[in-house]
């Protein structure tokens, strides 16, 4: 496949929708991010390489990459980047784009985030027990048995609430989130 001259695409969108994201243009391709990343060895493309792919308009490959999903949000890349590129934040935006395009690496990745958010939208608080059980049963039914050991450990020590905690003013939160979603759809993501 031959990549020719650039035209506005995912690269520009990612920069526009990440606060302070436009400095991505100044990427030196030095590899500090890739070198720093705790899970870099398991990524199919290091962040640096992913950025090079973005600049080369390899949008599909970028969206399908596991890299953003393997980001652990440790911010090493961000603080070490000699060009002060907010790499961690760019990874969040890339995840949003992948979900929106339905092109993510593994359904499980997006679904974990989705389940988590689902609980928040329902109760206003996260629900570790529900999340763990639902997510594990959906994606790793065979392993749930062994994982159940963990859950049991935690339950026994009073570290898992089996019923979710719900905030009182749920209608207020829902109104805020709905308005935010409406704005996001209208303006195309956060600035």
């Amino acid at each position: 496949m031959l990549y020719t001259s650039r035209k506005p695409g995912l690269y520009e969108q990612i920069m526009a929708e990440t606060p302070g994201g436009d400095v991505l243009m100044t990427c030196l391709q030095c590899g500090t991010c890739g070198g720093s990343c705790p899970s870099g060895a398991d990524m199919d493309a290091t962040p640096r390489r992913l950025f090079a792919m973005l600049m080369a308009d390899m949008d599909e490959a970028v969206l399908e990459s596991n890299t953003p999903w393997y980001c652990v949000s440790c911010y090493y890349c961000t603080v070490r980047c000699p060009q002060a590129i907010p790499i961690t934040d760019l990874m969040y935006t890339l995840k949003q784009k992948a979900i929106a395009a339905g092109k993510y690496h593994k359904e499980a990745h997006a679904d974990f985030s989705g389940s988590f958010v689902g609980y928040i939208e329902q109760y206003g608080r996260s629900f570790e027990f529900g999340l763990a059980t639902r997510f594990q049963l959906t994606h790793h039914p065979l392993k749930t048995l062994s994982k159940g050991g963990l859950g049991f450990d935690m339950l026994r020590r009073g570290r898992l609430n089996t019923t979710p905690d719900r905030i009182r003013n749920m209608p207020q939160l829902t109104a805020i989130l709905n308005e935010a979603k409406r704005l996001a759809a209208q303006h195309g993501g956060a600035p």
């Binding site: 935006t93 995840k95 988590f116 958010v117 207020q172 805020i176 935010a180």
Partner: peptide
Amino acid sequence: DDWNCCGATEFFSINALPAYSLVAR
């Protein structure tokens, strides 16, 4: 009083503006 979840790292992966709004509440 009546605080809600901060969204952890997950909400920011789904939709940034609602995530920031969630925290801003």
